[in-house]
Simulated assay, not measured.
Amino acid sequence: MSAPLSLFVTGTDTEIGKTFVSAALLRGFVREGLQAAALKPIAAGAFESNGVLHNEDADRLDAASSVLLPPAIRTPYLLKEPAAPHIAAALENVTFDIARIVDCHAQALTRADIVVVEGVGGFRVPLTATQDTADLAVALKLPVVLVVGMRLGCISHALLTAEAIAARGLTLAGWIANRVVPDMTFPDENIASIREHLAREYDAPLLGIVPHLNPASPERAADQLDIDRLLQTLRHAQR
């Protein structure tokens, strides 16, 4: 039996559809017959339902998964305030421990064929005074998939994020263009520019273009993703 696979999903910014694309990836992996689980290590913005704290993003990931992790493993840090993680953590007297997240990830790998780890916000969101989400990605030692929210400024955001990923010694397994602004001008030209730069500089392929979907449907979004190519890249990176 082959070893379980995993990847770290990051984005060019917040509110660019990172959770939606992560859910689409999960649905794509499930279609391939894989037992797929989601890890959302840090989630800020929780609500109570029947005495249990929930987070909308974490719930969406669970809905797209075929393996449901215990909440304490899936989201070891669930914060109530919908704010930047280090701000929400300070309000609740919580200190993030990356080692705890690494342990949760290790437990997740024993329960699934593939684990999708969704970061929080962009690639360098602060977690503590000295650590950020890039440090988390490094500690997990995972290939990274970059979600690019297609809107004004996305080319610079994509290239800067790719540069930061490479600077940490991580593999950029590929990127996904997500059409968050349906009436964006020159979307194809923007995608072509990012595609050229990321392929030439990081050998990172475009794994799919997700159209603006209303209502949002991870199933339909999965149709646009090159899951086979991503799996090949992940298996190669594992060797």
Rank of each mutant, 00 (worst) to 15 (best):
L136N: 02
E163C: 08
F186A: 14
L142G: 02
P71G: 05
R60S: 13
G174T: 12
A58M: 03
A89Y: 00
L61V: 00
R124E: 10
A158C: 07
N55R: 02
A64I: 03
V94K: 03
L136R: 04
P143L: 01
R168I: 06
A84E: 08
M184P: 00
N55H: 04
A164F: 09
D132N: 15
T95V: 14
C154G: 06
L91M: 15
E56M: 02
A162M: 09
V117L: 02
R111C: 01
I155N: 07
D57G: 09
D57S: 09
V117N: 00
P82H: 13
A83V: 08
H54I: 09
D57K: 02
P71A: 14
A129I: 06
T161K: 03
A90N: 11
A88Y: 07
F96E: 12
R60I: 05
D183M: 03
E48W: 09
G153H: 14
H105G: 03
E118T: 05
H157C: 09
A164W: 06
P126K: 10
A173M: 05
N50Q: 15
P76G: 12
D59F: 04
E56D: 14
A129G: 11
M184L: 15
V181I: 14
T133W: 01
F186V: 02
R124W: 10
G153N: 12
L152Q: 13
N178M: 04
V102R: 12
T171N: 14
T161Q: 07
L109A: 05
P71K: 12
D97C: 12
A63N: 08
N178P: 04
A134I: 01
L159I: 14
H105P: 02
D135V: 06
L127S: 10
L152R: 14
L140V: 12
T110G: 05
Q107L: 11
T161V: 04
V120R: 04
L170N: 07
A108D: 07
L109R: 10
C104N: 10
D59C: 05
L160E: 13
S156P: 00
R124Q: 14
F123C: 01
M150S: 03
G174E: 09
L69M: 05
A129Y: 03
N55A: 04
L91F: 11
T171W: 13
G121V: 04
P126Y: 04
W175S: 06
I114D: 03
P182N: 11
L140A: 10
T161W: 11
I165L: 07
Q107Y: 05
V117A: 01
D183T: 15
T133P: 00
G174S: 10
L136I: 09
L146E: 13
R111S: 09
N93W: 10
D57E: 07
A64E: 09
I114K: 00
F96D: 12
L170E: 09
L159H: 11
N55T: 11
L79R: 01
P85L: 01
A63Q: 13
A108C: 02
V147G: 07
K80F: 09
V138N: 01
D57R: 01
A108H: 06
L109T: 05
N178H: 10
E56A: 13
R100V: 14
G51T: 08
D103H: 15
M184Y: 13
T185A: 15
G121C: 06
G169H: 07
P85N: 06
L172H: 08
G169E: 10
A106C: 09
I73W: 07
N93H: 15
C104W: 12
G119A: 10
G121W: 00
I73H: 05
D59T: 05
L127M: 15
V148T: 08
A167F: 00
L159T: 10
